[in-house]
């Protein structure tokens, strides 16, 4: 296994551990991912709306990033200047972000029950003004990589060592702004910027290849002068290796194309991409939670 550096994942100034602990085994990470999947489907069913399937495809990568010793952050100090940034550009996967932030103790997990309710900081899409740990207000697709590039350039100007991670969806890659940002990041040689594409193959109305077939994605990113890793986005060891290798790349931004399954972990959601933007009904939730146990 290539990863789980012990120094990463700890905020040196405060010495506070990140999230709920330090270095974890694959089995521990699997257990966390399972718990976060339960959180995602529970909170969206409770809310009566939201995008559980888009959150389920992304959650394994986010689990490794937040709990596998990669993201250096301090929930007690969300504005710590040297923290690594994670920007969820595919803002509709907000339940996944809330699950990892809750698991990291940015806020009490009881807030999950307030998702999408008036007055709750857990809005339908992430709002950085209302919830600590949210690095960018997203939901209008295509903007997160540009914002991440701004953070990466600020780090360079200030001589700070933090990294910026941005996660986009694969439908989101249809937005022209993403390609503007890809060109600019390569031009500015921001080696402190990592893009993760949650390549779950489906967007709102149809499969990505039937809407705008931009395949092959990895090759396109390579010819845009990015370092590219292409992995199974549900293989925790592969995610660890790709994130580790990304950190070693010099002079270039890195993209991780994570091949994922929309609705991963719940068979009847995996089989039907029309679950986009739909929470599970109460009886479906019970079946889903039963599946996640096994």
């Amino acid at each position: 296994m290539a990863t789980t550096a012990t120094s990463a994942g700890v905020a040196p100034e405060s010495g506070a551990p990140v999230g709920t602990g330090g270095t974890r085994s694959i089995e521990e990470l699997e257990a966390i991912a399972r718990r976060l999947r339960e959180d995602i489907v529970r909170m969206t069913t409770k809310a009566g709306s939201g995008h559980p399937s888009s959150s389920l495809s992304a959650i394994d990568v986010m689990t490794v990033l937040y709990f596998g010793g990669f993201l250096r952050h301090d929930p007690k100090r969300p504005d710590w200047p040297d923290r690594d940034r994670f920007i969820l550009s595919k803002g509709h996967a907000a339940p996944a972000l809330y699950a990892v932030l809750g698991e990291s103790d940015y806020f009490p997990r009881t807030l999950f029950d307030t998702l999408r309710r008036i007055g709750s900081p857990l809005e339908g899409h992430p709002n950085m003004r209302r919830l600590p740990g949210v690095e960018a207000s997203t939901g209008s697709l295509g903007q997160g990589l540009s914002i991440g590039l701004g953070h990466a350039l600020a780090a360079r100007i200030d001589g700070r060592g933090y990294r910026t991670y941005v996660m986009t969806g694969d439908g989101e890659m249809e937005e022209g702004q993403v390609w503007e940002a890809l060109m600019a990041a390569a031009q500015f040689r921001t080696a402190n910027l990592t893009l993760i594409v949650d390549h779950n193959k489906a967007q709102q109305s149809n499969l990505v290849e039937r809407v705008l077939d931009y395949r092959p994605l990895a090759e396109k990113l390579r010819v845009f002068h990015w370092h590219v890793e292409e992995i199974d986005g549900h293989d925790l060891r592969a995610i660890q290796s790709a994130l580790s290798r990304a950190q070693e790349v010099g002079g270039r931004p890195q993209a991780i194309v994570a091949h994922t399954v929309k609705g991963k972990g719940i068979s009847f959601v995996e089989a039907d991409w029309s679950y986009h933007g739909k929470p599970l009904a109460e009886d479906e939730l019970a079946r889903a939670l039963e599946e996640l146990k096994n």
Binding site: P81, S146, G150, H151, L153, A181
Partner: peptide, 9 residues
């Protein structure tokens, strides 16, 4: 977008 990120940092 870059400006937004710069300002946030």
């Amino acid at each position: 977008g870059i400006a937004g990120g710069l300002a946030a940092s």
